[in-house]
């Protein structure tokens, strides 16, 4: 009952934010701004689509009383946690590598890191 009311809404929010990230990936001018778009939106969008899964699991556990639906929700929580921690660190690693390999931000007004390297 909860599921039919809430889950489509959560799925739609997650998909809209994921889609925004994809538009940003195509539209932004350089690698740093693309990282801005991709990291934030895909992490947040995946959290919302997974919340829909958790709502479904809770709803089916109440309806049927089978333990495997609780397992589904628990494993989804672990997967989302792993994703949220690793995604930010991966973005940080790519940004650092990009600056070290000589890609400088397009249309930048200030770059303190370039000055600090010399």
């Amino acid at each position: 009952m909860i599921f039919e009311a809430v889950a489509p809404l959560l799925l739609a929010i997650g998909l809209i934010f994921n889609g925004m990230g994809m538009v940003g990936l195509l539209r932004f001018p350089d690698v740093y701004t693309r990282l801005h778009a991709c990291t934030k939106t895909t992490t947040f969008g995946t959290i919302f689509t997974s919340l829909a899964v958790i709502v479904y699991a809770v709803d089916w556990f109440i309806a049927s009383g089978e333990g495997q639906y609780i397992m589904l929700g628990l494993h989804t929580v672990i997967a989302v946690f792993a994703l949220a921690v690793t995604n930010a660190t991966g973005a940080h690693a790519i940004a650092r590598a990009a600056h070290r390999s000589g890609v400088h931000p397009a249309r930048a007004v200030v770059d303190h890191l370039k000055g600090a390297k010399q």
Binding site: M20, R27, D30, A37, T41, T43, P105, R107, V109
Partner: peptide, 22 residues
């Protein structure tokens, strides 16, 4: 995080950016 996503959506639609590293 919610504010960040709305912010990114705004920047994607309008394309109004002024980037830099500080």
């Amino acid at each position: 995080m919610a504010v960040a996503n709305l912010n990114v959506a705004y920047r994607v639609i309008t394309g109004r950016i002024r980037p830099g590293i500080m």
